[in-house]
Amino acid sequence: MPADSAVLDVVVTDPIISRFAERLQAGAPRHRWRFLADAPPEVRSHALAGADVVVCARMDAKEAAACNARLVQVTGAGLDRVSVAALRPAVAVANTFHHERPIAEHVLMSILALTRRFPAVSGELRAGVWRTIATDDAVPLHRTLDSMTLGVVGFGGIGRETARLAAALGMDVVAVRNRPEAPLSMGALPRWVGGVGDLPRLLAESDVVVVTVPLNDATEGLIGPAEFAAMRQDAVLVNVARGPVVDQAALYRALVDKQIGGAAIDVWWGAPEAGRTPPADFPFSELPNVVLTPHYSGHARSTFELRADDIAGNVNRVAAGQPVRNQVR
């Protein structure tokens, strides 16, 4: 960073990225870093109002309206927990990524767990039941990944990386996205890419449907009763997007009625609380054909180390009067 760059007041309210305080400070050492994830609300609100840069995962409308920062740096990709519309027009907003590979690996793990019935088989063996094709003719044989079609709903960074890894293991890949005509990277070339109107075709062709779209007005409830009816009876759904992208009542009914083969749920419908963990209105945890994880698919160490580097770099850019990277507003 140039020696004549400004020294900035940087307030960090995200508890997860705060674990990487040393890396943040090493990347932008001349600045005043304040880590306030555990501070009382009044202390945090006062600090946000006076900060040059705010590093956060969440910001409500009241905090956003009082924010005078030059940059609000979101610590992940999604903006749905930050009241961007309430920020003053002069406040820039940037995000960061680096979760694509960990989430893609999680998707592949989930596919194998579901298609090889890990939840049910593990439960049987823990209960003292040894049940295989050698002991029970009703036990199905495994399928290998190279015999399956993966349908990717949304083809941003996560969708592309999932497609790349799946194709490397022999899966046939198809995809839908908002702009099907946009260029494709050479590492992720599905057999076909369609628009949102091609979703029924994708659902009908796919053995696995992975949902990776952002949550907004257009995608809330995108996968509902009609979509489950369009899926193959033995197909599985993997949701690594946001919970409300999938209609939870329709998903539960599709699983109970064996309308689909199974589901992997990493994202939920609200926050966990007593009596509602996992956070859903239906008892998904009682079903044998689901893989349940606590929104952790992207939680690799590399994700947060690289995000910390991005954040420190943007702090330095603000101080030097340079454009920030990954600016979304």
Score class of each variant (00 low, 15 high):
249 A>N: 07
128 G>Q: 07
302 S>N: 10
262 G>P: 02
231 M>G: 01
84 V>D: 00
8 L>S: 07
234 D>H: 07
314 N>R: 11
114 L>G: 01
97 F>A: 09
182 A>S: 09
95 N>R: 13
87 L>Y: 08
258 K>S: 15
192 W>K: 06
82 V>H: 01
6 A>H: 09
203 L>F: 04
7 V>K: 14
263 A>T: 03
268 W>H: 06
187 G>Y: 07
189 L>H: 01
7 V>C: 04
3 A>R: 09
89 P>V: 14
79 L>C: 02
99 H>G: 08
241 A>I: 12
78 G>I: 09
69 A>C: 09
315 V>E: 03
147 S>Q: 15
132 T>Q: 01
80 D>M: 14
233 Q>R: 14
127 A>L: 06
132 T>N: 11
110 S>K: 06
139 V>E: 03
78 G>F: 04
118 F>H: 13
169 L>N: 04
3 A>F: 06
250 A>H: 01
134 A>E: 13
206 S>R: 09
121 V>Y: 05
161 E>L: 15
41 P>N: 03
68 N>L: 06
177 R>F: 04
249 A>P: 00
240 V>M: 03
10 V>D: 04
169 L>F: 15
158 I>A: 00
143 R>S: 14
286 E>D: 13
113 A>G: 05
292 L>M: 11
318 V>T: 03
283 P>A: 03
309 D>C: 02
48 L>D: 05
118 F>C: 10
203 L>G: 02
39 A>K: 10
47 A>D: 02
227 E>D: 05
4 D>P: 05
157 G>S: 12
300 A>P: 11
317 R>V: 08
146 D>Y: 12
102 P>Y: 03
320 A>H: 08
172 D>T: 15
50 G>W: 13
323 P>D: 04
162 T>L: 09
113 A>M: 15
49 A>W: 08
